[in-house]
Structures are given as structure tokens and as C-alpha cells.
Design a protein around this nucleic acid. Structure first.
Lengths: 186, 186
DNA sequence: ATCTTTGTACAGTTTTTTCTGTACGAACTT
DNA sequence: AAGTTCGTACAGAAAAAACTGTACAAAGAT
């Protein structure tokens, strides 16, 4: 009995090592540390989990589980599972990490790049207008200096957008192929 | 006079459009919104700025400017500038956005991927141990289920590491070439 | 129909992060 | 040497974010 309990604890410890690391890094996807732990917990669970089970398992309120589950769903990191005769909502992790994690990556970066680029264009347009038509020589001068600066930024964004579209189109998988099974070496 | 003032305001507004957007997105690099504004302000400044000028310009304390400048420097987004006979520290933005921004990108992601992968290996090892040698059949079973789950995660990390090394080695620039000047089309 | 069960909106509390003011060390000036 | 100027450490204040408990709507059971 005692040894068995010991082994259960070993198992939990092994899992916890991984869960903790996920929790520490998941902020890159705009997910909170504790919701990262939630993800890890669902990941290792034998079966899809209900909100109540999550709450129980993490010692957090059901409300938090509810909002956490929403965040994870939006990030495509978990999905609903259906089981006959079970009324409660069930969730399990999305097993395709390429899709779940890289979807988030694409979403965040393309969104950011698009917005930044849009802002750049707006600013550029106004500056061009000013550098042409302003009465004040000083303003004209400043505007053209600014335009100069925006050049390299614009080049960067064009490059970044192309990089992102590598991922959006899936072309990245031609360059770095998916691996369905990892190398078997230890 | 009045028109001139008007035009100055137009200039500021144009700049602000861009600065605000940067500030909103720079959290992807673990930089605060307000320090993002600081970056934008330095970016558009005619000359390298001192801490006092930043403080004055943003209406924030000099202390915040000091810590902000440190954060931006660590992210390789700004750099010190030297001017003869000026005692104060001067800062300007790093004009190479490829380097500054993509350096940060690489740092964050490779660090995160490495740590996660390391944790995965640790966990895997413990689980293998358990699935072989545990006395409890239940623990054995759970451990092997977990190992199964870790397979696809491992594949993902191997893939991710290769993707990141595309950036580290600069090979990405063979695939998506840098653009020194943007397309001249409007 | 009433009575449960389940998930979430919302307001308030706790925790964390950000920001500021004071104080001080280092470097420069005279 | 004493007197400035500058940048930052540190403690405390202000602001923001995370978390909880209550309350309620929707759906299911009886």
C-alpha cells in the first residue's frame, strides 16, 4: 500500500514537471500561468474533464475554470468532447500541437503585423501629405525625416508578413516537414 | 502662426497613430504598453534622447524611463548614442528592425522551446522508469498512457526547434529574403 | 408545471504589476 | 577638497489583473 501510494506520487511529480514548464511558458500565447496549469492537467487526465473536476483538481473556483476553458478554446488548445448521457461539458486537449500552438502563433503575429502595418500606412500617408503641402518649412522637414525612418520599418513588415504567410499557407511544412513520430532514439 | 501650430499638431497626430499601435502590440516582446510608447517616441525623435527628455515628453518619472530604457536595451530595440561633450546618456532606436525585433522573437521562443523540451525529456524518463518498474499495475498503465501522449508533443517540439533554428542561423533570409528597400509602389 | 443541475455574468476582493519619490553612489566640475 | 549632475535601488502608492462568491438564465429531469 505504502509503496503504491509512493508510486502514485512519483507519477504526479513526473507530470508536474512538465505541467509547470508549460505553465511558465504559455504566456507567449497570452495564456495565464494558472490556466497553463489547467491545460497541463487536462492534458494528462485519463478522460475528458468537467468544470467541476478541474475546479477540484486545481483547487480553483469553477468560475475561473469556465473562463480558463474559454481562453484555451479560443487558442484552439482544447476542444469539447461528447459522451453519451453526460450532461456536463467535457473538455480534452487538442492532440495536434502543430495546429493548436501554431494556430495561436499565427493569429497573434499576423494580427499584430497587420495592425502595425496598417498604422504605418496611415502615418505614411499623412506624412506624405504634410511633407508636400505644409506651409511650415520645419514641419515639411520633420515629415520627410519621419518618412525616411518608416522606410526600413516598412521593409521589415513586408518581410514579416511573408514569413507569417509561410505558416498560414502551410508552406513551412515543405521547408521543415512535420514529424508524425519523433525520432526513436533516447 | 496659427496654421503652423495646426500643422505641428497634425504631425504629432500622424506620429501618434503609429506609436499607439506599436505600444499595443509590443507586449509580444514582453514590453509594456507605456514602454512601447517610449520606444515610439524615441523612434520619431529628431535626435537621440536623454532620460530627462523622455520623462518630459511622456510625462512619466525619470525612474520609469531608466527601467524602460533598460528593458528596451535588453530587447535590442534601442542603443546608446554618443555625442561629444554630452554627459547624459543618449539613446536612439536600433534602425535594423530585422535584428532588433527578430532577435527578441528568437530569444523568447527558443528559450521557451528548449525549456519545454527539457521538461518533456525529464518527464518522459521518469515515466519510462515507472512504466517498467512500478509495482502497481495501475501506475504502470497510467505511465504508458502518458508516454503515448508525449509522443506527439515531442514531435512538435522537434519541429519547432528546427523552425527556430531557421531564424537563428539566418537561413530564413534565404527563404524569405530581406528587403533593404520596400517596394516603391504606393 | 416545479425542481435540479450546469455554466457564466458581474461585483467585489485579493494578488500582482506598474509607477513614483526619496535617497544615495558614481562621476564630473571647480 | 566640496559641490553638482546623473542614473538607479528601493520602498511605498496607484493601477491593473486574476480570482472568488453570489446570483441567475438555460436546459434537463420529474
Amino acid at each position: 500500500m505504502n509503496e503504491q501510494h509512493q508510486e502514485e506520487m512519483e507519477l504526479d511529480k513526473a507530470r508536474d514537471r512538465f505541467i509547470t514548464e508549460i505553465a511558465n511558458n504559455v504566456h507567449l500565447y497570452d495564456i495565464t500561468n494558472s490556466i497553463g496549469r489547467l491545460y497541463g492537467t487536462i492534458f494528462f487526465a485519463e478522460k475528458p474533464m468537467t468544470l467541476d473536476e478541474m475546479s477540484e483538481s486545481l483547487g480553483m473556483s469553477k468560475t475561473s475554470m469556465s473562463t480558463g476553458v474559454r481562453a484555451l478554446s479560443e487558442a484552439n488548445m482544447i476542444e469539447k468532447a461528447w459522451e453519451k448521457g453526460v450532461r456536463k461539458d467535457l473538455y480534452r486537449t487538442n492532440p495536434d500541437w502543430y495546429k493548436s500552438f501554431s494556430t495561436v502563433f499565427i493569429k497573434r503575429w499576423s494580427q499584430s503585423a497587420a495592425k502595425n502595418h496598417q498604422a504605418l500606412c496611415d502615418t505614411k500617408q499623412k506624412l506624405q501629405e504634410l511633407s508636400k503641402n505644409a506651409d511650415s518649412e520645419e514641419v515639411k522637414h520633420k515629415a520627410s525625416l519621419d518618412l525616411e525612418k518608416l522606410r526600413s520599418a516598412e521593409a521589415y513588415y513586408e518581410w514579416l508578413n511573408e514569413v507569417i504567410s509561410l505558416f498560414e499557407t502551410g508552406e513551412i511544412f515543405n521547408i521543415v516537414p512535420k514529424r508524425n513520430e519523433p525520432s526513436q532514439k533516447v
